[in-house]
């Protein structure tokens, strides 16, 4: 069994559903496997599997203008790959985006290749003036997702929630 937490993934997924999210775009990464499977098995959810994360910005923009709430599931390296789309589509056109970003390369990371991106993730979000918070405990997941979406919709801007190791990984 993968040490990725099914329990936490379910709580995150149910919180997304509770906020009315009906489209999820995703590019698979280890920590997201259960979330993506839950979206795939949910007949009420449109799951769009991407070739590259930046596509998800355009897809979410289209969904928003069409009146459908969406979320993006990506790794922090996917955030790095999406920057122009975030700036030149979502921010330029004041499009809300709810980005759930697996925070690889933080304390406890064993994969050397994840560590460089981990080190720039928070500074990058600040440089882009993207409000963000952490999902690191099941107790606050639902409230933080709901509040992040509320801000995103009222400000018409992207927001980010960092899916942390303490929430997503059970082998601590």
């Amino acid at each position: 069994m993968s040490p990725v937490s099914v329990t936490s993934s379910r709580i995150v997924y149910d919180a997304l559903k509770a906020t009315g999210v009906r489209l999820v775009s995703a590019l698979p990464e280890t920590w997201l496997v259960h979330l993506i499977r839950m979206a795939e098995e949910d007949p009420e959810m449109i799951l769009v599997r991407l070739a590259k994360e930046e596509e998800g910005v355009g897809i979410s923009a289209g969904a928003h203008l069409a009146g459908v709430k969406s979320a993006m599931l990506m790794q922090n390296h996917g955030l790095l790959a999406s920057i122009n789309g975030i700036v030149s589509c979502a921010q330029l056109y004041r499009i809300p985006l709810l980005m759930l970003i697996s925070y690889r390369g933080e304390f406890g990371e064993r994969d050397p290749w994840q560590t460089e991106g981990g080190g720039v993730t928070e500074d990058l979000l600040r440089a882009l003036r993207i409000p963000f918070s952490y999902l690191d405990n099941v107790g606050h997941v639902a409230a933080r997702i709901a509040k992040a979406q509320t801000l995103s919709l009222s400000a018409n801007k992207p927001v980010a929630l960092l899916l942390c190791r303490d929430l997503m990984w059970e082998e601590n």
Partner: peptide
Amino acid sequence: QHAMGLASSMGLGIALT
């Protein structure tokens, strides 16, 4: 007017929803 490459992705997002 910017974000080159994403017009087709926007179209996909609208068409699916």
